[in-house]
Amino acid sequence: MSLYYVQKLLYQLNRDSHTQQRYREDFEGLLAEYELDDEERDALRDGDIGLLYVMGVNGQILMHYSALIGQEWHEYIEAMKDGVKQHGPVRGGLYTLLEERDQ
């Protein structure tokens, strides 16, 4: 679990045109530069918003990434809801507190 590096990759991807070019042309090379586990690499390869949300990626980072990969707003919201249904509650980061609130 390396939530920090998942978020760091997405942060740089969201803001930096050079990283966006590498995302399109050499995604595996880009992934290899970050300390990620297999589940994280797969979630990033698949653009799996739901799983990334459950891992604990900050929604602001995730929302910009969702825009980058061309999701409509309702698709983004649904993907997070589906992620929680499929993978269970948020595992890390700020939103674990949301889960605690709801319990």
């Binding site: 942060y11 980072i61 929302m63």
Partner: peptide, 9 residues
């Protein structure tokens, strides 16, 4: 802001 410039590093 929302992680456009500043990050947890």
């Amino acid at each position: 802001e929302h992680f456009a410039n500043f990050f947890m590093n």
